[in-house]
Amino acid sequence: MKSIDKTKLKMKPRNKINNMETHKNKELDAFIKEITTYGYFTTLKPDDRKNYLFNAKIIFDRYSSMLIAVQDLLKTCLNTIYNDENGNATEVENPIKHLKTLLEIAVQLLPINEGEVFDAVHKFVLKTKEFEKTDALSLDK
Score class of each variant (00 low, 15 high):
E130S: 15
V121L: 14
M11S: 12
H23Y: 07
S64N: 08
Q71D: 15
D48G: 12
I68S: 05
D47L: 03
I81Y: 05
T42G: 06
K33Y: 11
K57T: 15
I81C: 02
I59T: 15
F54W: 06
P46R: 11
L102F: 05
D29E: 13
K33I: 03
Y38P: 01
K129R: 15
T36P: 01
K133G: 02
I32A: 06
I68C: 01
K50R: 11
T43Q: 14
K8P: 00
A120D: 15
N86M: 13
K33P: 00
A30P: 00
N55V: 02
M66E: 01
V121T: 07
R49E: 15
C77N: 06
C77P: 00
I96T: 11
H23V: 01
L137G: 01
N94L: 05
F131N: 14
E132C: 09
K2Y: 07
E130T: 12
L78C: 07
F60Y: 14
K16G: 03
P111H: 02
L137S: 14
E114M: 04
D72W: 03
I35P: 01
I105A: 02
E132R: 13
A56K: 11
N25I: 07
L110A: 09
K97L: 10
L126T: 15
D48Q: 09
T43F: 11
T76Y: 05
G39C: 04
A56C: 06
H122C: 10
I17Y: 07
T43Y: 08
N18S: 05
A120H: 10
F31V: 05
E116L: 11
N83C: 04
A89P: 00
L99N: 02
N55K: 12
P13V: 11
N94M: 06
Y40G: 05
K45N: 13
K6Q: 09
E27D: 12
L109F: 02
K45R: 13
V92R: 04
